[in-house]
Nucleic acid binder design. Structure first.
Length: 459
RNA sequence: GUGGUCGUAGCUCAGUUGGUUAGAGCGAUAGAUUGUGGAUCUAUAGGUCGUGGGUUCAAGCCCCAUCUUCCACCCCA
């Protein structure tokens, strides 16, 4: 029989017990914060109908969707004409439509929008929900980038109030404070970006402008100007844009400059006003982490319409570990117009990477028994089983070695698993109704009554 | 999708201009020690050198393809 080398798909990972303990620590903190802020959990299927997912993430997004081949003979009913399609690109699109109708979810926001529309009659609005589940992207893996990763989303839908933005800011601040990660929280507003596009006389080039602007901190002004020209922005417009790009200093000064810049742009004024309100509230709340207004922040999927948020770790080189924003009409495409929502997504895997790099995990994180009963044989087993049940009833994680193996082997087992205590019960101890409790750290061992054991272990 | 990079024992890695039977450390297993782990000593096991082709008298080493790892771009958590 030939054996194959075991492996998993590119960009996916197994998680060992030690890793799971750390991951669960993060999930627990995040879930706890979400709940304290009054959000309710939901889950949606790993796969969605492709029609739900396609076209929601831009051209690039469609390419990154994992598509699921139809079951059965998926070539059945393939129109003959398809094979005659001239270029491979459009042939692929048409083919895909016939052989795949499901795809793995790309994020949690679009499935959430679908969920809201589908269950609108059962939901109470504004609906505050959180969702912690894996998503899949057919990206090339690299640092902090996986093909399967967990997002932790919080959204509130059905409310235009900027208080929701403020609340999300508090959630971000609380989560990262609890995890011990220093972060910079950058805010911007799509309306400000639209205002800029309008003010420089290129309102139709919003996307091109934002994509180019976003690279400012990475590539520098020259490259950004090059790209703007390349994307068809006129010299005149670029010239008007430049002083805005280099805007620095206090938030208040930025506001002042932009307010005059937006003299003839109502949408720009609206954006500034929104930013002012959100940032003022956040300032009054006196949070631990720094919030900044950054007009070069353009990220976020194409469906964002208002506030956009991005969070980066200050002490580690890693992409954004949390991001989100407001979307005014995501449910519109599913037939429920006029429903504004705002939400953010924490990238659990990147947060985990950052915390590992910075050694921020508590050392006490472990998922092992507190005590191991050594197995001496049939008689002793029976006795230990009862003691074991008692300890477990008291909430003490405990286990009995399943085989009457050599003592050395059993002790080594406890040692390697980092089980801090071992209980040895042989004939003598059984007769006396006592147990030998050994501290694996110090090596000390003493005879105890069951009550004493419970007391020592329940510490 | 574009560009680069890695792959030799369970793990971390040596391996000369292509030349006999591919090595080390750690780990694993067994024993020294039949009711006591970590330390020490001894012995043992473990590799179709990522995979498939090619060049050569001869390939871990050279060439091609492919998969995988990691990194950058694009984009993003």
């Amino acid at each position: 029989m030939s054996s194959q080398k075991p492996s998993i798909p590119k960009g996916t990972r197994d998680f060992s017990p030690a890793e799971m303990v750390r991951r669960n620590f993060i999930f627990d903190v995040i879930r706890n914060v979400f709940q304290v802020f009054g959000y309710q959990p939901i889950e949606t299927p790993a796969m969605e109908n492709l029609s739900t997912l396609m076209g929601k993430y831009g051209e690039e997004g469609d390419k990154l969707l994992f598509k699921i081949l139809n079951s059965g003979n998926y070539l059945d009913g393939l129109p003959e004409a398809e094979s005659g399609m001239r270029d491979a690109g459009s042939r692929l699109v048409h083919l895909t439509r016939h052989i795949a109708e499901k795809g793995l979810r790309y994020d949690l926001t679009v499935p959430f929008a679908r969920f809201v529309v589908q269950h609108q009659n059962d939901l109470v609005f504004p609906f505050k929900r959180y969702q912690i589940q894996p998503v899949w992207r057919a990206d090339r893996p690299q640092k902090g980038r996986y093909r399967e990763f967990f997002q932790c989303d919080v959204d509130v839908i059905g409310s235009n109030s900027l208080l929701n933005e403020v609340e999300l800011g508090q959630i971000i601040d609380t989560v990262f404070s609890r995890l011990g990660i220093n972060v910079l929280i950058r805010l911007n507003n799509r309306k400000v970006l639209a205002g800029i596009a309008e003010a420089i006389g290129a309102p139709d080039k919003l996307t091109d402008i934002t994509v180019a602007m976003d690279k400012l901190d990475k590539t520098g002004m020259d490259k950004v100007v090059d790209e703007l020209i390349e994307r068809g922005i006129t010299y005149e417009s670029v010239e008007k844009l430049q002083p805005i790009l280099t805007l620095e200093g206090k938030i208040k000064e930025k506001f002042d400059t932009l307010t005059s810049f937006f003299a003839n742009s109502t949408i720009g004024q609206k954006g500034i006003e929104e930013m002012r309100i959100v940032l003022q509230h956040l300032k009054d709340l006196d949070l631990k982490n720094k919030f900044d207004f950054d007009i070069t922040l353009a990220r976020g999927l194409s469906y964002y319409t208002g506030t956009i948020i991005e969070v980066k770790a200050l002490d580690a080189a890693m992409g954004s570990i949390c991001g989100g924003g407001r979307y005014d009409d995501l449910t519109g495409i599913f037939g429920l117009p006029g429903m504004s929502g705002v939400g953010i997504s924490f990238g659990a895997d990147r947060i985990c990477d950052v915390m590992s790099e910075l050694k921020l995990f508590p050392e006490t994180l472990q998922a092992v028994s507190r005590v191991l009963f050594v197995n001496f044989g049939t008689e002793e087993e029976k006795y230990c089983l009862k003691q074991l049940a008692d300890l477990r009833k008291a909430g003490i994680p405990a286990e009995l070695y399943p085989d009457p193996s050599k003592l050395k082997k059993q002790m080594e087992y406890a040692n390697r698993k980092n089980i801090p205590f071992v209980i040895l019960v042989g004939k003598d101890e059984m007769e006396q109704g006592q147990m030998a409790l050994k501290d694996m750290r110090s090596g000390e061992q003493k005879i105890c009554t069951p009550g004493e054991v419970k007391q020592i272990l329940s510490w």
